[in-house]
Amino acid sequence: MNAPANSTKTSDLRLEEMTRILDVASELRTRQELIERQLHLDAVKDDLRKRLLAGAKVSGEPVTAEQVDVAVEQYFDNLHAYQDPPGGIGTFFAKLYVRCGCWIPMIALFLIVTTAGYFTFRALA
């Protein structure tokens, strides 16, 4: 009687473990592929150049090999670069929120500004 229940439990466990193991293996494979790609980056860039030139030829785009080289280099130069969003009301409130560590001062200031704006509008109107 116990045997069927145990085998179901065992098979569930095995499935869970197997899935986890597969996930880990998959991650390892992905990581290895990433490393290989990075180590062979010159070949990757060459391949990209060739494909871009072929594509441009097919589409009739009048682009030269030098222009493609420059574009490819610029792409990789900017690939992992980061820049904060440009200044504005949203960025200001976002930074205020982050600086204070909670949303209360931000909301309070937002309410003050909107209320003051409302009454000013009414007075002018």
Binding site: H80, A81, Y82, Q83, D84, P85, A94, K95, V98, R99
Partner: peptide, 10 residues
């Protein structure tokens, strides 16, 4: 490139 990430509060 990492300094830009570390300097960004957001």
């Amino acid at each position: 490139k990492l300094p830009a990430y570390k300097a960004s509060r957001l």
